[in-house]
Write a protein that binds this DNA or RNA. Structure first.
Lengths: 350, 350
DNA sequence: TATGGTCAGTAAATCGTTACACCAGTCAGA
DNA sequence: TCTGACTGGTGTAACGATTTACTGACCATA
């Protein structure tokens, strides 16, 4: 338990440290099977574990993946962080946690610091349309995996994205409402700068048109663009939106929110106004956080398969680890799933 | 931006690397002010940042604090993780995230791995009564800070705990209900092994007795002890508890739950049975997670000041960093606060 | 004028791994 | 028999910081 080095293992196995190192680094073909067995034996005998710091110093890389989320205080990101940590653990990686609070400047500082610390793989959960502020590090060889943010046209080619198809998701949500008979819908989101908003709103519109309704009649509520709310405050956005929208004339009967936290905020706002969700107004969220099912009424939502997304992210990292080639990885667009619960119903007849 | 070492700084400032190192490590008194200024200038000029791996290798310590939580998927731990990361960042520390899933064995493996990796400070969120499985590492000098788990009699003396006073919290919750006129209460928790349960239940009992009621009449529902639920599933515990408790004869009119997730599960279970929270039954939770206020009805709960707790944890770490003495730190018991919302009311009159 | 003490700073030895260059045998093919 | 390739390794120089022991120079005191 004290501290056992590669030298001691080498001595115990009667070989040089180089050979032990070779075995440790997957070059086991360069030695006799018998030698390999002796080393393996010595390693487990002595309980040897390579010193991470020394290894990092020598190689310049880490078995640590950086995770930058808007805020783990948001249950969606918390749940995702958990899944990613599980997947990383299975591959022998650690996860270093960073909360960007959706601040591009913090985001950049975190990325720079992680890079300086030898982290070469970062899972970045951002909704910024541009990655320009990170370009200088990506060029140097950082592998960036963006999550919940589809690849944009001007992204560097080595950036991989893992995301659901937001257009399909938006379509699922809105067409669910139109098929229930709703003819007056609103799309609620916080910041307009969000990449996801664009796709989801596009899907929303296509569903509206497919139902023979005019998009122009549909409200789009997007508050707080200049002073963006943090992720934890996403619920406040929804609540304020509800207050505003349902105080106006000809309020909608169906709402699609950019995510579940906002949707729950909308529900809360509707209750403030004495309206009942799932009867007076139908609400659809995005994400399917654990509280969606717990809420009263349980929230209809478009599920993101976070477990699968986390595993894909780690798989991407593992498959590229150590490669310095600027070889582009494969981005993934997953199909979202609509989960119908009590917050949606046919519109009230009056 | 390439990679600038301490040698280059030394050369630029016209001194030796040792002197730069001395400055970096707070021994600035050993040089002329003019020298110090030249070095400082060179550092910012070159954009020098010390190599973490080299530093770790040499010293054997890290500026990384390990955070072991049951699961960041649980909004309470997610919110705490965020606060801790903020507090750590302000002191120049990174946070390495681990999810124990309340599995003592995983907990031990994480602690051992972190120790091997040079992490000397761990914030451990556990509810295990004993720390025996970690004793061998604590003896070697690990600084352990337990959170949401008051110090136990046989804890090693170097272990610091930061926690609310659970007895007071349990008392606050139950006396709130008795003062509203409730005379038949139930305490709902998952695992019986939880340290917090003991304190909170004790406070619950004292409040019941103070109201002139017999504790023997009060139900204690504690399910799933052998096969403990993960933290994410805490809500399921509450839901199943509600189904069981309110199917029995003479059901209570007030429920105190071990935490908010469980409380929300209870609410969900009550709704399954057609009972209305805040009218038919009053429910009090613990933690005050962000969703407590968002729920319908908003949840009355005993708040834990997680921001303050996180700052205290980091302050403790900073003040002891580098000390190898087994000097015990100061444990803290914070006073919880009752937040009254819509989930509690006077019992129904029949 | 010795003696000793501070001051301001340096040289060199690590910390544990990795990777490049090298080396002694063996063996196939020309 | 000579050449070149392959096999199964080993020696050694880094990687970038910290830290211990040391060294002149200068000053004060006895």
């Amino acid at each position: 338990m004290e501290k056992v080095t590669i030298q001691q293992v080498a001595r115990a196995a009667g070989v040089s440290a180089s050979t032990v190192s070779n075995l440790l680094n997957g070059r086991s073909g360069r030695m006799l099977p018998a030698t390999r067995d002796r080393i393996t034996e010595a390693i487990s005998q002595l309980g040897y574990r390579p010193n991470r710091a020394a290894r990092e110093l020598r190689t310049g890389r880490t078995r640590t993946v950086g995770l930058i989320v808007p805020s783990v205080g948001n249950p969606f990101w918390g749940a995702f962080a958990r899944e990613l940590e599980h997947a990383a653990l299975a591959e022998g990686y650690n996860v270093l946690l960073c909360n960007s609070e959706r601040d591009p400047d913090r985001e950049r500082r975190y990325v720079e610091e992680l890079w300086d610390d030898g982290v070469r793989e970062i899972v970045l959960c951002t909704s910024l349309p541009s990655l320009k502020h990170l370009a200088h590090i990506i060029e140097q060889g950082l592998r960036l995996i963006t999550l919940d943010r589809p690849t944009q046209a001007d992204d560097p080619s080595t950036v991989v994205s893992i995301s659901i198809n937001n257009v399909v998701g938006g379509h699922l949500a809105a067409s669910h409402l139109t098929s229930l008979g709703h003819r007056n819908l609103t799309f609620v989101s916080g910041s307009l700068r969000s990449v996801n908003r664009t796709g989801r709103y596009e899907g929303f519109c296509s569903a509206v048109e497919a139902a023979g309704l005019a998009v122009a009649d549909m409200t789009l509520w997007a508050g707080a663009d200049e002073a963006p709310f943090g992720d934890v405050e996403a619920a406040d956005v929804g609540r304020r939106a509800a207050h505003e929208i349902f105080a106006a004339a000809n309020p909608p009967t169906g709402v699609v929110a950019i995510n579940d936290m906002t949707a729950l905020g909308v529900c809360r706002g509707l209750r403030d106004l004495g309206l009942q969700v799932g009867r007076d107004v139908s609400v659809v969220g995005f994400d399917d956080i654990i509280l969606a099912d717990l809420y009263d009424p349980p929230l209809t939502t478009v599920r993101q398969p976070i477990g699968q997304m986390a595993r894909l992210a780690i798989a991407e990292i593992v498959s590229h680890h150590g490669l310095t080639t600027g070889e582009p990885g494969r981005s993934v667009l997953l199909r979202p799933e609509l989960i119908v619960r009590g917050s949606t119903a046919a519109p009230p007849v009056d």
